[in-house]
Simulated scan of single mutants.
Amino acid sequence: MLRKRLIAALVLVALCGACTNTKNDKAETQANGTTDEKNAVAQKHILFFGTSLTAGYGLDPSEAYPALIQNRIDSLKLPYKVINGGLSGETSAGGKGRIDWLLKQPIDVFVLELGANDGLRGIPVAETTKNLQFIIDQVKSKYPNVKIVLAGMQVPPNMGSTYANDFKEMFPKLAKQNQIELIPFLLDKVGGVPKLNQADGIHPTAAGDKILAENVWVVLKGLL
């Protein structure tokens, strides 16, 4: 009889322990789930919207400057995910046509790098200005609290001094008018430097994109 009682007691203890472990496991799972949900909610998005310079033409995707910015962000454990919205050959008019599609995802920081192809094609500065303003307005309208950075560009002097100057001044004027941040010249220390550009003399090498990432980071880091 004593033996049966002892066995019954041991079984009861085992069952209680199993119940306790199950409750603990369930509580831990719920806690982890809550943490994951908080992390998902806390994560913010940076959209780089631009041309082949942003897309990383001729480079491995990991070498493009937006990817390098993501690496910097990860190293600092900041809750931002970079989205590369660069498209080779994109003009300001093309960007105007596809911005709404990209804004379907939540955006907290918007980096606008458009205009370079307009300049190379000699598109009137007034037209490019109008298109860039439209894009800025669309972004602000969809996400009123978004932080915007405009990447300044320049064109070669063979486009004519008047056009080149008007094009260069377009970016600071837009930045001031819209009260947004400005990268004075995205290709600073890279444009016109043969060893930092690919054979076409237009698109940066991997080493060149590292400098582009630094040019961007100088302005971007204050917004994060």
Rank of each mutant, 00 (worst) to 15 (best):
M1G: 15
L6E: 10
A8E: 10
V11P: 00
A14E: 02
C16F: 06
G17Q: 01
T22E: 15
N24F: 13
K26L: 13
E28Y: 00
Q30D: 00
N32K: 14
T35F: 10
T35I: 14
D36Y: 04
Q43F: 15
H45C: 11
I46L: 03
L47N: 11
T51V: 00
L53F: 02
A55S: 09
A55K: 13
G56I: 00
Y57N: 09
L59T: 10
S62N: 10
S62A: 14
E63Q: 15
Y65A: 00
Y65I: 05
A67I: 00
N71V: 03
R72C: 06
R72W: 09
D74H: 04
K81W: 01
V82Y: 05
I83S: 02
G86W: 05
G86C: 06
L87N: 13
L87Q: 15
T91A: 04
G94M: 05
G94R: 11
K96W: 03
G97T: 08
I99Y: 06
I99A: 07
D100S: 01
W101D: 14
L102T: 04
L102V: 02
K104H: 09
K104L: 13
K104C: 08
V109W: 00
V109D: 14
F110M: 12
L112Y: 01
L112H: 03
E113V: 03
E113S: 11
E113Q: 07
E113C: 09
L114Y: 12
L114M: 02
G115F: 07
A116R: 04
N117F: 10
L120R: 02
R121A: 12
G122T: 01
G122P: 09
P124V: 08
P124C: 12
V125M: 02
V125R: 01
E127G: 11
K130M: 05
K130F: 05
N131K: 01
L132N: 05
L132E: 09
I135S: 10
I136M: 08
K140I: 01
Y143W: 06
N145C: 07
V146Q: 09
K147H: 10
I148Q: 10
L150N: 07
L150Y: 01
A151W: 03
G152I: 08
M153D: 11
V155C: 12
V155K: 11
N158H: 12
A164P: 05
D166P: 13
M170Q: 12
F171G: 01
Q177L: 09
Q177A: 11
N178C: 12
Q179L: 04
I180A: 08
F185N: 11
K189V: 04
K189S: 04
G191L: 03
G191M: 00
G191I: 07
G192A: 13
V193R: 03
P194M: 08
L196D: 04
A199K: 03
I202N: 10
G208L: 01
G208Q: 02
D209G: 12
D209T: 11
I211C: 06
E214P: 03
V216K: 07
V216S: 13
V219H: 01
V219D: 08
V219G: 00
G222H: 10
G222C: 01
L223T: 07
